[in-house]
């Protein structure tokens, strides 16, 4: 089944970060992955020693794909071969996200995010 052609007049993207993707054109398979540990400590962090990712369970869990027991057979018939979009304005694409102008067969993206906040004691504030 021939995928349709995407016609975009103007696309404005502000920022792409953390293993993200702005794809113009067709793809067969996309598989972005991102493991993010965000640590905010009052007084700043000198080094990232002690924050290894493998010690946290969230980064070691494996994701089971969703079982698809039902057999679904679909047929698509494109009477018009084009998709027209005149303006696209995306401010931010982040953390293994995908913006694609085109078609694709298989997309499998994974993002793991963990936040840690370390504050000083209240009484530590005064001294």
């Amino acid at each position: 089944m021939m995928p349709r052609t995407t016609n975009v007049k103007q696309a404005k993207i502000n920022s792409i970060s953390h293993s993200s993707l702005f794809q113009i054109g067709d793809t067969k398979e996309i598989k972005p992955q991102a493991d993010v540990l965000a640590v905010q400590k009052e007084g700043g962090i000198s080094s990232d020693k002690g924050f290894e990712l493998n010690q946290y369970r969230i980064f070691n869990t494996t994701i089971q794909p969703i079982p698809d027991p039902e057999i679904v057979v679909g047929s698509h018939c494109h009477h018009h071969q084009n998709i027209y979009v005149s303006n696209i304005d995306v401010t931010a694409i982040s953390t293994s996200a995908i913006t694609q102008l085109g078609s694709s067969k298989k997309i499998n993206s994974l993002a793991r995010l963990k936040h840690i906040r370390i504050l000083k004691d209240e009484n530590e504030e005064e001294d």
């Binding site: 998709i83 953390t95 293994s96 995908i98 694609q100 085109g102 997309i107």
Partner: peptide, 8 residues
């Protein structure tokens, strides 16, 4: 965070 915007 692993979301998708696709035109196609």
């Amino acid at each position: 965070s692993s979301s998708l915007f696709i035109v196609g």
